[in-house]
Design a protein around this nucleic acid. Structure first.
Length: 564
RNA sequence: UGGGGCGUCGCCAAGUGGUUAAGGCACCGGACUUUGGAUCCGGCAUUCGGAGGUUCGAAUCCUCCCGCCCCAGCCA
């Protein structure tokens, strides 16, 4: 799936490369792959890669494989592969029958390693991990060759076979490529290709006690799958010479690795390690907490797959490290939800309103448009009666300048209802306004005055006796600073956690039509924001709504300006 | 002091020797409005990290300088 080619999105450098390769005849069809390691949940940063890889395949009539990079059994689990598949499907992409695992290639990879040893391009090293590190040298000093580097091919072959057979202890030996211990690129200083590791693998079980390293597995898996363009992030740029070297020395099909900048988003973090820390420390309610930048969290929050896809298109792909303003993401959800979310009325902080001249016991069913952006969405009936709730912040005892809503003596329009005028208000002992006394103009049913009289303010409301009680969870940025990664002194990123990232409102009142709402449904509470029925905690009896994003709020801006 | 990358508006990002230096977000005006939403109009880089140079002409080519990111896992 990908969006109709938006002319406002210019071609990026990867598209340029692919088009050249197609035009020159280097490739007839392109093949890409999305290669997650099943050691955590997918986040919005992965979405960029997913959209890129599947997007290129779709745009140029090729295919994109899903391949799990599962070469480290210590960190990988089936739970993660399941969640990854679910997230990719939800995002709207289909790998059909092309679901692969690096572990499927273990036997072939082993043969490739043997081939390298036979060519004298790899050797078994008996050095310990510490010794290997000591021999590696530093950024500015060359490394030293291992004393085992030039041992006979036959000896390495024998040792490697016995490594596989389980004759040696974990960590006692490794297979290394024989390249150049003096290279300025540390990846070329005889990189480790295989290590001994007795760990249960989620797919191969206990079949293997040696596992290939990333460099020995990734490019070779790409080659086996005939990947034409292997797209990865910038930190692998230094690995490209090794990627090319291995494919060349083994003598197999050479895919082309192309690196692009990973996504960074302001006010959040993308590091799996840090995300896991938030989960483990109980600072969020799990991987799918609606504040998390994980796809499962965003899905639960109410982000649409389409808005994420559009976002990924919008930010484009380049090689410069960058941090995208989270407001751009919010823009794309608003854009999408504006078109598809049914409008309803919900009162978050209820303030009781009695319409004094409205007949006791009378109920009217008023027509309300479901979505002004989409006539096909039709309309619904909303009950109106003598006692209503409006939002507390739609009343001001002493209204500030430019405030168009309710205040003593002020007339406003109730959305799809009547014009009402506040004639009095009631306070409790604590001095809080607890009730408004209003009158209505029977001539203004539906919201317009026959005499042409205009009101500046329109507010939302619900009928007290008909409204449903609900819990509403307001979410804000997870971190209060744009770049939580930057911390002073001994502080750590968690010190930037936004204490107001979640505000739970109980006792909210929403219109009765919401009785039909089901988990995952998104609506717009008019004048407030977009909300999604929580998929975990919501029940028909006790509905729970998550705020996806607020509506743009001009009044808030005016207030800010007035304040200072 | 090694190697690999990157620097164009507050944030993304086009641009590949001749364009008035795209577009989006944000921001600022205004119109419209039964959501202070949406929509619509208008504004928003004499300048491309800096300095030299080549050229009739440079963000694009050359030289030097500056800044930022990545690499010393038997992680990926």
């Amino acid at each position: 799936m990908n969006e109709p080619n938006d002319s406002s999105t210019p071609k990026h450098f990867i598209q340029a490369i692919i088009e050249e390769d197609l035009a020159s005849g280097k490739h007839e069809r392109i093949v890409t792959r999305f290669p997650p390691e099943p050691n955590g949940y997918l986040h919005i940063g992965h979405a960029k890669s997913i959209c890129l890889n599947f997007g290129m395949a779709a745009q140029y009539g090729g295919t994109c494989n899903l391949r799990f990079d599962d070469t480290n059994p210590i960190k990988e689990e089936q739970e993660y592969v399941d969640s990854i598949k679910e997230d990719i499907r939800w995002l709207g992409f289909d790998w059909e029958d092309r679901e692969f695992y690096a572990s499927d290639y273990f036997e072939t990879l082993y043969e490739y390693a043997v081939r390298l040893i036979e060519k004298g391009k790899a050797y078994v090293d008996d050095l310990s991990a510490d010794e290997i590190r000591e021999h590696r040298g530093t950024l500015t000093e060359p490394g030293r060759e291992s004393p085992y580097r030039d041992r006979p091919v036959e000896e390495s072959l024998d040792l490697f076979r016995r490594m596989r057979a389980g004759e040696f202890a974990d960590g006692s030996r490794v297979l290394r490529a024989k390249i150049d211990m003096a290279s300025g690129n540390l990846n070329l200083r005889d990189p480790v290709l295989y290590r001994i590791l007795r760990a249960h693998h989620h797919r191969t079980g206990d079949d293997w006690c040696i596992y290939p390293m990333y460099d020995m597995a990734h490019g070779q898996s790409d080659s086996i799958e005939r990947i034409t363009h292997s797209l990865c992030t910038l930190e692998f740029e230094d690995h490209r010479p090794l990627y090319d070297w291995l494919v060349e020395e083994i003598g197999i099909y050479p895919p082309r690795q192309i690196e692009f900048a990973r996504l960074n988003l302001s006010h959040t973090i993308m590091s799996k390690r840090k995300l896991l820390e938030l989960v483990n420390d109980g600072l969020v309610d799990g991987w799918d907490d609606p504040r998390m930048p994980t796809l499962s969290g965003m899905r639960r929050r109410g982000f649409t797959a389409r808005s994420i896809r559009r976002f990924c298109d919008g930010i484009s792909v380049a090689k410069a490290n960058s941090t995208v303003d989270i407001q751009l993401l919010e823009h794309y959800v608003r854009e999408d939800l504006n078109k598809i979310a049914p409008r309803v009325m919900g009162v978050l902080r209820p303030l009781r309103v009695v319409i004094e001249n409205y007949p006791e016991g009378q109920v009217e069913e008023l027509d309300a448009i479901n979505n002004p952006e989409n006539p096909d969405a039709g309309s619904r009936k909303v009950p109106f009666s003598r006692v209503l709730y409006v939002d507390r912040n739609d009343f001001h005892e002493d209204p500030p300048k430019k405030y168009f809503r309710l205040a003593p003596g002020r007339e406003v329009r109730l959305r799809y209802g009547y014009f009402i005028t506040c004639v009095d208000f009631v306070k409790n002992d604590a001095g809080e306004v607890v009730e408004l006394r209003c009158t209505y103009d029977p001539e203004t049913r539906g919201g317009s005055a026959p005499d042409g009289r205009r009101v500046r303010g329109t507010i939302h409301w619900v009928s007290a006796e008909h409204a449903l009680a609900a819990e509403v969870r307001l979410y804000d940025h997870l971190f209060s600073v744009a770049d939580p990664g930057v911390v002073e002194g001994g502080a750590d990123f968690k010190s930037h956690l936004n204490p107001d990232s979640r505000t739970v409102l109980a006792g909210c009142r929403v219109e009765p039509s919401l009785a039909e709402a089901r988990a995952g449904d998104c609506v717009q509470f008019e004048r407030v924001g977009y909300f999604c029925v929580d998929s975990k905690d919501s029940t028909p009896q006790d509905p729970v709504f998550n705020r996806v994003v607020s509506l743009r709020d001009t009044w808030a801006k005016i207030q800010k300006k007035q304040a200072g």
